[in-house]
Amino acid sequence: MSRLFTLAFLAQSLRIGLPYLAAAMGGIWSERAGVVNVALEGTMLVGALGAVIGTTTSGSPWIGLLCALVAGVVLQLVHGLAVLRGHANAIVSGIAINLLAAGGTRFLLRSFYDSASNSPSIPSLVRRSSDASGSALLASTLLDPSTWLVVTCIAVTVFAFSRTRFGLRVLAVGESPAAAENAGVSIDRTRLGAVVCAGLCAGMAGAWLAFDQHQFSSGMSGGRGFIALAAVIAGGWRPGRAAFACLVFGAAEAAQILFQDQHWVPHHLVQMLPYVVTLIALAGVIGRSRPPAALGRN
């Protein structure tokens, strides 16, 4: 048990929690604007592949990051247009988008790298030290620019909602679209803008996964988009609380990795830990909350 209170564990929790954080911010943008977004999962996936393809073709991970963001935005725009212009049910659209992302990334994996499972390895934004000690891990996580990009994601989100015109409009259309429209705010345009932000954040989350694992592998988002969405809900659609929920989920997953090589607990059961924690969080242990009033109505 003492291993839970080490720097290594802290570093690991943070490292695992970061992509959740970025994706959760994406979920907040979209859902605060009133667009239900189960498409985060697929968006992370295309973000990850975008990062890898961009990096391998250009040689620069920064170009890779850019590609991840673009890919995320494009996929979220498809979702946004299907829901806002096509009046598709947002969950149906999200499910279809996830399937599109899963099949599409595998297809592209074969096209680019002639592999059904994974891409060649790519460098990170900066080289990580190979030192595996807790403090070194923590230091390298903290020094990683992608960590700070995620932190920026959160900061910008919080700031945007309180201080920018666009943020104010997003809150308004998600809470009371009729009132916002009456005040001269375009509902669809604001929601599309919010969905673009969701694409940026979730694409960023995907890039983080790819850089962290130095490659793309088929289906590598592994349900993280849904867990991030659960964090959004458990956090009451508020950036700070959702970020906290993400870190809790990150810790659960870090604990899973920690226990995996312990013989006194069956590793299959340990594998369930993050998912069970998510279920419990959904049941309202973290606090039940009120969704944006117009969420899912369009």
């Binding site: 920018t164 015109r165 409009r169 809150l171 009371s176 009132a179 916002a180 005040a183 001269g184």
Partner: peptide
């Protein structure tokens, strides 16, 4: 036609928000 979760001032601003250097 008011957004109940926003303050009165935010509601008054909505749609024609006054900004300075791009910020509210």
């Amino acid at each position: 036609m008011l957004v109940p979760t926003l303050t009165g001032l935010q509601n008054l601003a909505l749609g024609f928000e006054p900004t300075k250097h791009g910020l509210l």
